[in-house]
């Protein structure tokens, strides 16, 4: 209970409790797990349970769904039992909680039960703000574990490195980079990939290991495909298109991404003047204009026109006018990569 006493001594500022990273979670009477990244939150809560289970194997775990909370539930599971086992109460869905839940947790915070750990999972949003403010204000002597989304590439690299380190394994920088670029969409997938490498391979994890398990997998976006195609690199664009489709991109937004780029180029193509002036005239950001001007090298008006026609045709095709949306996309990439000069039928 050391954590509890130290937390109680905290100042009464707006956030008076320690805010920790997900991996630093530790037992406290009230643990608020906030943030949008569900995967990390689940992991943090699991870690907490393992720690508590290690301390006392008779730990009693109960779950509460805050979205369907009925009055009295918390009191029932938090009231002391005959043998006084420690208890872990996990409340999920606090971002959708009922009014009764807020009221009862607030009154519970005034006198938390001994040997009971209440974990509140709040997935972000305004609901239950009063409750969050009370916990952050120090009521109940809690801690907050912040699980924000890993948006930046470096965050993901750090995450992967930590994964290997916690398993006592070493991974080369190149291997981690390759892994992160292969699983850039979802942290859960990245973590699963790390775990698989840790359990299936022996020794240091090197680029060769990653290559062996996940070779050729690159996550890419529709815009990246469009960039390569517009630059005229046909083969590379086709490969990337296949990667995008294989990693879950849908043909319809891919066409939309292409259309957006080509539309901007067409608008810029016939306009003269400095970028700043054009930007305000066309309602776009100056960098978009500069980008379009760079993209336009080697393009002709007629070529742009043909590409726009093919785009409309492809949009119809991927929405059911033709049988094979992927073929239609490939044909479109062909026309755009040749800058509208030829049609591959």
């Amino acid at each position: 209970m050391a954590a509890r006493t130290s937390a109680r001594g905290g100042a009464k500022a707006s956030v008076a409790i320690p805010q920790l990273d997900w991996s630093k979670i530790r037992p406290a009477p009230v643990v608020l797990v906030s943030g949008t990244e569900n995967f990390l939150a689940d992991r943090a809560i699991r870690m907490l349970r393992e720690v508590l289970k290690l301390e006392d194997p008779s730990l009693e775990v109960s779950d509460i769904d805050a979205a369907a909370y009925a009055p009295g539930e918390l009191l029932t599971v938090a009231s002391p039992s005959l043998f006084g086992e420690p208890r872990l109460i996990r409340a999920t869905g606090v971002e959708k909680c009922t009014d009764a839940f807020i009221a009862e947790v607030l009154s519970y915070l005034e006198a938390p039960a001994d040997g009971t750990y209440l974990v509140l999972r709040h997935g972000g949003g305004m609901r239950g703000k009063k409750l969050l403010d009370a916990i952050r204000g120090g009521a109940g002597g809690g801690i907050e574990v912040v699980c924000t989304e890993l948006k930046k590439e470096t965050d993901k690299v750090d995450f992967a490195v930590a994964e290997f380190r916690s398993a006592g394994r070493k991974a080369t920088a190149g291997a981690v980079r390759a892994l992160v670029s292969a699983f850039s969409d979802d942290v859960a997938e990245l973590a699963a990939a790390c775990q698989q490498l840790i359990s299936d391979s022996s020794g240091d994890v090197t680029e060769a290991t990653v290559e062996k398990y996940y070779s050729g997998r690159v996550e890419t976006t529709a815009f990246a495909v469009a960039d390569v195609a517009i630059a005229g690199r046909h083969g590379e664009a086709l490969v990337m298109l296949r990667h995008a489709l294989a990693s879950g991109a849908d043909p319809v937004p891919i066409v939309a991404a292409f259309a957006m780029k080509v539309r901007t180029m067409a608008k810029v193509a016939g306009s003269r003047g400095p970028s700043g002036q054009l930007a305000s005239q066309l309602g776009m950001a100056p960098w978009q204009i500069d980008r379009a001007k760079r993209d336009l090298q080697g393009w002709s008006g007629a070529g742009l026109g043909r590409c726009i026609e093919v785009l409309a045709e492809t949009d119809a095709a991927v929405k059911g006018a033709e049988r094979d949306p992927v073929f239609a996309l490939e044909r479109m990439v062909g026309v755009i990569a040749s800058r509208g000069a030829s049609r591959i039928e």
């Binding site: 539309r263 067409a266 949009d315 006018a321």
Partner: peptide, 25 residues
């Protein structure tokens, strides 16, 4: 063609653009 495409749920902007490109030819 553009009328038919819009009926088939093609993005209106794209259908109109393709239609007007035909005018430039």
């Amino acid at each position: 063609t553009a009328r038919r495409r819009i009926e088939g749920n093609v993005a209106p902007a794209l259908a109109l653009e393709a239609m007007l490109v035909a005018v430039t030819k």
